[in-house]
Design a protein around this nucleic acid. Structure first.
Length: 501
RNA sequence: GAUCCACUAGCUCAGGCGGUAGAGCACUUGACUUUUAAUCAAGGUGUCCGGAGUUCGAGUCUCCGGUGGAUCACCA
């Protein structure tokens, strides 16, 4: 029934098709009427890909090969033609001659459109101009393209179309394909690195009843049978630490997080994060792991630790400097928080520097504000900023000798945050109090403050070993290693508003 | 959420002070048996993002709306 409706709908649409679309549909109908419906073909025997032939011509010269791909250009010259087909590796030129394929096949070859998918068998050779090509002895139309591709020379530039119809972007812009292949390799290299060090990859719930582990507004959804609100996770932290309580000792999760916040070149509502937890180590252990992980992945995937990001030279060779937040703020603003003893004094110092302070933040909060204002965007080379104020670190172990600070670091490269890690707070009584503080902030209107998670506290009461935890923003790491300007350039399908029809 | 910019043929883009829309590629037809942004000849492209207004007349000016981009705010 629905098919009938669709067919009627299609017929109505066809009346309005412009010439370019109509010609292609007519060619398809002709093929179908003559018993050559390309959509009935189910497989094609591909023996080689373009990449291996282009890379090893001497080995392949005069050998018979079978390739398949998308027709990207056509240069007809009467009784012979050249065309290019593109597969996952790239493009190769095909030479088709009437003497070799016969009159009938040659006539139908001339009717192929750019964008069609074809299979070709033939012999590898080099043209007079020196281009490695396939001298075809037969070809098969494997799928008909009913729409024209974007222009061959300028490609597809319209950002809106590139994101909404990413397949077109992938077909015509080779750098885009390269970026996403690199993305996949980076993620595979991260898994290899962690697996080799004894980490166990786990999966924790994306549907949460209490979203925790980060300061962020969650997406809210509804479960029908349970008839209750649920939240998409903002971080996996509280689940992963339960697994450390459970004795899994070294775990990681690499997956999608969801935060209901603003979008920018650095933020997409869903993004990929890697979090790992290692029992019996602390944030110093996490620093070593973070710098080793990122530099190793760069070396393996990019082939170097010295990279360029948007014109800036960045050297990822470890070790990376460790600077306390207090020292960093002192260095860049001249305000030494070691000499500040009260909240009021801190606010005065910030105001004296010309900062606009609203409400009555604590000393630690002012320190963090001054860090963001004076230091963050200056940290181009990889730098660990360590010892964060306890007020902004509700899940972090305090420094034994300075309980107002915590054993936490964030990693900065190119002025952006790439990672966040700490010695995990394992004192259930302190954790309970920190949650109570967060709940107060929440009740005071801070929508990003943590909710009370009694089940998590219960887990800690059973005993969490001293543990180091590390989170790395994977999309940002991929941006860095692929020299991508916007997070949307490393997401195949970035979040888009639907177009109003 | 705020500000600025963009939206014209399938794609990439031009359209001066308001006078009824153009190029290249792609497409159609023809020529051409090693071309390569193939070439040569001829031909057709259109909801100028949508709506309203001003005007004799709007792609162009004004207002409202849509989508995207950049910057800012918030965050990772």
């Amino acid at each position: 029934m629905s098919e009938i409706i669709n067919n009627n709908h299609n017929e109505q649409e066809e009346l309005e098709l412009n010439e370019i679309l109509q010609v292609r549909r007519d060619k398809l109908s002709e093929l179908q009427l003559s018993g050559n419906d390309p959509f009935q073909i189910v497989k094609y025997d591909v023996t080689h890909k373009t990449g291996e032939i282009l890379a090893n011509f001497e080995e392949f010269e005069d050998k018979q090969v079978s390739l398949a791909g998308r027709l990207m250009s056509k240069r007809g010259m009467g009784k012979s033609s050249f065309c290019d087909i593109q597969d996952v590796d790239g493009r190769i030129q095909i030479y088709v001659r009437i003497n070799d394929v016969g009159e009938e096949q040659y006539e139908s070859f001339k009717k192929l459109d750019i964008g069609d998918i074809i299979g070709v068998t033939g012999r590898v050779f080099k043209t007079r101009m020196g281009e490695i090509s396939i001298h075809a002895d037969s070809y098969t139309l494997l799928s008909k393209s009913l729409r024209p591709l974007p222009e061959k020379f300028h490609g597809l530039k319209d950002q809106d179309t590139r994101y909404r119809q990413r397949y077109l972007d992938l077909i015509v812009n080779p750098d885009v394909k390269k970026t996403f292949i690199t993305r996949s390799r980076i993620i595979a290299a991260i898994r290899r690195f962690l697996d080799a060090r004894g980490f166990l990859e786990v999966e924790t719930p994306i549907l949460n009843t209490i979203p925790g582990g980060a300061a962020a507004r969650p997406f809210i959804t509804h479960h029908n049978t349970l008839d209750m609100e649920m939240y998409l996770r903002i971080a996996p932290e509280l689940y992963l630490k339960r697994l450390i309580v459970g004795g899994l000792d070294n775990v990681y999760e690499l997956g999608r997080m969801f935060r209901n916040e603003g979008m920018s070149i650095k933020h997409n509502p869903e993004f990929t994060m890697m979090e790992l937890y290692q029992a019996y180590t602390d944030y110093h252990g996490m620093m070593e792991l973070a710098e080793t992980l990122i530099s190793t992945v760069a070396q393996e995937v990019i082939g170097t630790m010295k990279i360029e990001y948007q014109g800036q030279q960045v050297d990822l060779t470890p070790p990376w400097p460790r600077i306390t937040m207090i020292d960093a703020v002192n260095e860049h603003s001249g305000v030494n928080f070691n000499d500040i003893s009260s909240d009021e004094e801190a606010i005065e110092a910030a105001k004296a520097k010309g900062m606009n302070i609203e409400g009555s933040p604590s000393k630690g909060e002012v320190l963090n504000m001054m860090f963001e204002e004076y230091v963050e965007d200056k940290l181009i080379q990889p730098t660990f900023i360590i010892d964060y104020p306890v007020e902004i670190s509700p899940l972090t172990k305090r420094k034994a000798d300075r309980p107002e600070l915590t054993e936490r670091f964030e990693l900065f490269i190119t002025g952006r945050e790439f990672g966040n890690a700490y010695s995990e707070l394992n004192d259930p009584i302190d954790q309970k109090e920190r949650f109570v503080d967060q709940v107060k902030k929440r009740e005071a209107g801070d929508e990003e403050a943590n909710m009370m998670d009694e089940d998590f506290v219960l887990a800690l009461e059973h005993g969490l070993p001293p543990t180091g935890g590390l989170g790395i923003g994977i999309d940002r790491l991929i941006m860095l290693l692929t020299d991508s300007f916007s997070i949307r350039d490393v997401l195949l399908f970035p979040t888009m508003k639907p177009k109003e029809r």
